[in-house]
C-alpha cells in the first residue's frame, strides 16, 4: 500500500484521499500519489493498486464524483468531493485528529 510501514498506514488511505480532495478541490489519481509523496517528503508513497479501488468505491458510495476532461489529446478523470463527501470529510478529519491526539498522549508517557 505505502512504501513506509504498511500496517501503520493501512486504513488511513480513505482519510488521506478525502483530505487531499478537500484541499485541492479536484485531483486525478497520479496527482494524488505525487501530492502525498511531496507533502510527506517521500515517506508516504501510495500504490496504484490501493488508490484506484478506493477511488471507485468512494465514487460508487457517492462520497466523491468524477469528471473527464481532455488534456493534451487524452482523457483525464478528475475526482472531487460531493456535498455528502464534504460533510463526511470534515467528520472523518475530526475523528482522525482525535485519534492522533490520543496516540500522541499515550506515546508521550
Amino acid at each position: 500500500m505505502f512504501k513506509s510501514n504498511k500496517t501503520l498506514y493501512k486504513g488511513t488511505l480513505q482519510n488521506i484521499i478525502l483530505k487531499l480532495l478537500a484541499s485541492e478541490v479536484k485531483m486525478y489519481g497520479y496527482q494524488m500519489t505525487q501530492r502525498a509523496k511531496e507533502l510527506t517528503k517521500g515517506h508516504l508513497e501510495m500504490t496504484e493498486g490501493a488508490l484506484y479501488p478506493i477511488l471507485h468505491k468512494l465514487e460508487n458510495d457517492g462520497i466523491i464524483e468524477s469528471e473527464v476532461q481532455n488534456v493534451n489529446g487524452r482523457d483525464r478523470k478528475y475526482y472531487l468531493l460531493t456535498e455528502n463527501g464534504k460533510k463526511q470529510q470534515v467528520k472523518q478529519e475530526e475523528e482522525m485528529k482525535n485519534y492522533l491526539l490520543n496516540l500522541t498522549t499515550i506515546f508521550n508517557i
Partner: peptide
Amino acid sequence: SDFMRKMRWQIEKSNILE
C-alpha cells in the same frame, strides 16, 4: 491480476451494500 481483484471486490461490495 491483483489490481483487477481489488477493483472487482470494491465495486461488488459497493453494489451489494447499496
